[in-house]
Amino acid sequence: MIEWRKASRSGTSDNTSCVEVANLAGNIGVRDSKDPQGPKLAVTRANWRTLARRIKDGDHDLA
């Protein structure tokens, strides 16, 4: 069974924009907590580290 958890830097305290992550065999799973049965993304650990760093750096800010 896959154990999903809220990403540490995800959304606000009201949980309306929450990303969940899971440890998959060799990869990191990502899904939208509002749609747990919906699509999921699996990325390599290296790509996850790069994505997380770029998000923290503001490279993907929408504003």
Rank of each mutant, 00 (worst) to 15 (best):
M1W: 05
I2K: 10
E3N: 05
W4K: 00
R5N: 09
R5P: 06
R5L: 07
K6R: 14
S8N: 11
S8E: 13
R9V: 02
R9Y: 08
S10Q: 04
G11Y: 01
G11F: 07
G11P: 04
T12F: 13
T12K: 11
S13K: 09
S13Y: 02
D14F: 08
D14N: 15
N15H: 14
N15Y: 14
T16I: 15
S17Y: 05
C18H: 08
V19T: 11
E20H: 07
E20R: 04
E20W: 12
V21I: 14
V21M: 08
V21S: 01
V21D: 00
V21W: 01
A22Q: 05
A22L: 09
N23E: 15
L24M: 10
L24P: 04
L24G: 05
A25K: 15
G26P: 11
V30K: 04
R31M: 12
D32P: 06
D32Q: 10
S33F: 06
K34E: 09
K34T: 10
K34L: 13
K34S: 15
D35T: 13
P36R: 08
Q37H: 12
Q37M: 04
P39L: 11
P39N: 08
K40H: 06
L41P: 02
A42F: 01
A42D: 03
A42M: 02
V43F: 03
T44W: 00
T44E: 02
R45Y: 09
R45E: 11
A46F: 06
A46I: 04
A46W: 00
N47G: 13
N47T: 12
W48I: 09
T50Y: 05
L51S: 00
R53E: 15
R53P: 03
R54P: 04
R54D: 15
R54N: 14
I55P: 00
I55K: 00
I55E: 00
I55M: 01
K56M: 10
D57I: 14
D57Y: 11
D57Q: 15
D59W: 08
D59G: 06
H60A: 08
H60W: 08
D61V: 08
A63I: 05
